[in-house]
Write a protein that binds this DNA or RNA. Structure first.
Lengths: 223, 223
DNA sequence: GTCTATAACGCGATAGAC
DNA sequence: GTCTATCGCGTTATAGAC
């Protein structure tokens, strides 16, 4: 039974290595060696390196999106910005980080790994991966966006988009680097600061970001 | 005289291609072909691919950091968060974007290119580049950080670091994707939304982000 | 299904003529 | 300072024995 799990071994090794080095910088040789499987097995089981990259993503994103969809259903009626973010991040924690048998430090690493993979899907030139994500998960993304917009009834729709990207960048960047930020903080202040602290700070900060104070006079709103 | 500029031609082509595809994904063959110079000339003029990557960075960061240092001197005495961000971004615009002979659309591309290069220096596994940047420009970075912290006297130092990364992510991510965000906005709202709009939105948003409302009761402060 | 061996190719870097 | 030619290596992918 130590053999049947070849596919899982490859996925495990690949997600770790992709997150550490990026997609282009990680060779199939490195992955198969780390996984303790044969070099040829990636092409046998997945067909190509690109298909492996997509499979790594789907393994995490499928359960996350399914759970998020359910959690959003329960939320219906609520109109708090913070509640939406809280729903998003708690889904992230329960599906991505809180895998059985992981202690808290390992959960952080798991979360960070996924955020790095996600960030690099946009940062690196992996057009096939962006297309894959949009085609597979675009509906849920748009649904979340609409819910978020509905909680901010007075917002200028164009400003909303800009704010949205501010928000996205803050989240992905921070959660991607969470262990190095923790390290800097511990070095400088001899104080541990965990993910839960970061998220408890991030959620109100994102909510504060989205609150546009007053319409700036210079650009009249479109009608 | 069309020859002496080989070094410049290489730097121009390299910064465009690195920003588009990343460092690992861009070969010297691609760069030299785009630049219309010989394959061997990169190794002749720069010594190695790594040295070329660093040179691409230095060409933009040197003037930016020098100008920022001067602009911060003029600012001394002011204690507004917004003034600091405004100084940072106006320096960015005047040294990175506003090169002679560029129209506004070209300036956006120039700015975006630099932000992408900067983001990828951290995202991709380019340890030599991070070390280069820290060693060359670390002093100014720390100086800016201290000024920023001084404008927020009541802030919890640990929270300050987390907020700082939220801020960094929002900025780099947004300015890296500025043309695609503009494209989405124009498709959906038939309304042009330029960088100046994004920056006018970003500056108060970042300032708002940094303002911690009140200490949350649940986590007692370390003494 | 898994292995070894290798094909087919692209890479960074360099030697040496000009 | 610029060229051609090529070395040496690492890559993805595949063919074929087991």
């Amino acid at each position: 039974m130590a053999q049947k799990e070849t596919v899982e071994r490859i996925l495990d090794a690949a997600s770790v290595l992709f997150a550490e080095r990026g997609y282009a910088e990680t060779s199939l040789r490195t992955i198969t060696t780390a996984a303790g499987v044969n070099l040829a097995s990636v092409n046998y089981h997945f067909g190509s390196k690109k298909a492996l990259i997509q499979a790594v993503f789907a393994r995490t994103l499928d359960p996350f999106c399914q759970q998020l969809s359910e959690n959003l259903n329960k939320l219906k009626g609520s109109d708090q910005v913070e509640a939406l973010f809280r729903c998003l991040f708690s889904t992230l924690m329960e599906t991505v980080a809180a895998k059985p048998g992981l202690n808290q430090a390992e959960q952080v690493i798991e979360l960070q790994r996924f955020m790095r993979l996600l960030g690099m899907a946009y940062t690196q030139s992996q057009g096939h991966l962006r297309r894959f994500i949009v085609s597979q998960y675009g509906d849920l993304y748009r649904r979340f966006l609409n819910l978020l917009r509905d909680t901010l009834p007075g917002i200028n729709p164009v400003d909303f988009y800009w704010q949205l990207y501010f928000l996205l960048g803050a989240t992905v960047f921070t959660l991607s680097s969470i262990d190095s930020i923790q390290g800097i903080i511990e070095d400088n202040f001899s104080e541990h600061s965990g993910v839960e602290r970061a998220l408890e700070l991030l959620i109100p900060t994102l909510s504060r970001m989205m609150q546009i104070p007053a319409v700036d006079s210079s650009t009249p709103a479109a009608d």
